[in-house]
């Protein structure tokens, strides 16, 4: 069964149709990359999945549960949005770490706040807190920041900040982790460390959707690539076919820009 099914998602801002009839599905443990030129709607799609935007049409189904159906108001209740959001994680292009907290606290905060809603929170407060901290430390260790836990975001490089953001998203154990151009705000020499972390997540069988402009990375890490242009999916399929043997004229044009960039 698919872990995620996106069916006919449609989204307009005013009179501009930004997403038109977007459909795809993915299985547990798969990595899907979304590529496409600026303004093609990639960020908007991820924001729809994370309930930061409400689609005007279509359905979002996770593990067989319909989280959103534009035709069914019962799936759009405001107070259920928060729980549904937790199915997805989102790593932003600009990190968006909380500047007043250490790396460790950035990773722990949301878990601590969620834990307060547990019925046994009062009784087991200490133990719960200790467990949250232990998990956060494990995650930061995993992204290679064991010696940076007590640093504040301003004391970290962009690459380190983005790795904290990844650990922070993982802490809530989302079913599907989304990345919106995770390396676009980084100096070229810092992209490698972030891409390495994402690769390591793939070997842990994490289900991920990655919006990226790193074509070689997308080809190597993905099970499936989606090429978007003008709010529609122009072409999707196996990474090698899309990157090395695109069929559609628009895909060929888009990719040729990257080939010439890499050669020059």
């Amino acid at each position: 069964m698919s872990i995620l099914e996106v069916q006919n998602i449609q989204k307009s801002f005013g009179s501009i149709e930004v997403l038109r009839d977007i459909s795809f599905s993915m299985k547990k443990g798969q990595v899907v990359s979304i590529i496409g030129s600026s303004g093609s709607g990639k960020t908007t799609l991820l924001r729809c999945l994370n309930f930061l935007e409400r689609p005007d049409g279509g359905r979002i189904v996770v593990n067989g549960e319909t989280l959103f159906d534009a035709a069914d108001p019962a799936t759009q209740r405001e107070r259920e949005v928060r729980r549904k959001r937790l199915r997805f994680g989102l790593v932003f292009q600009s990190f968006n770490l909380f500047p007043q907290y250490t790396a460790l606290k950035n990773v722990m905060l949301a878990c601590e706040l969620l834990a307060r809603e547990r019925p046994d929170y009062r009784a087991n407060r200490r133990a719960i807190q200790a467990q949250i901290e232990a998990e956060a430390r494990t995650l930061l260790d995993k992204v290679g920041l064991a010696n940076r836990m007590q640093n504040y975001p301003w004391q970290l490089s962009g690459g380190q900040q983005q790795r904290v953001a990844i650990a922070r998203a993982l802490a809530l154990k989302p079913d599907i982790l989304c990345f919106d151009e995770p390396t676009s705000a980084l100096d070229p020499e810092l992209t490698g460390e972030v891409l390495r972390v994402i690769r390591s997540l793939k070997s842990d069988d994490r289900t991920m959707i990655i919006v990226t402009h790193e074509m070689a990375f997308a080809r190597d890490v993905s099970d499936h690539i989606i090429f978007m242009d003008g709010g529609v999916i122009v072409e999707q399929g196996n990474p090698y076919n899309i990157i090395n043997n695109p069929r559609e004229e628009r895909t060929i044009q888009f990719l040729s820009r990257y080939q010439t960039q890499q050669e020059s």
Binding site: R85, F92, N96, P99, A169
Partner: peptide, 24 residues
């Protein structure tokens, strides 16, 4: 981005105000 990061992490609006924004 601060509010959106909080929302995506499942925080409520009041939690975002008191735990994320207020100090800033």
């Amino acid at each position: 981005g601060q509010e959106e990061a909080g929302l995506v992490l499942g925080m409520t609006k009041p939690q975002i105000f008191f735990h994320v924004k207020l100090s800033q």
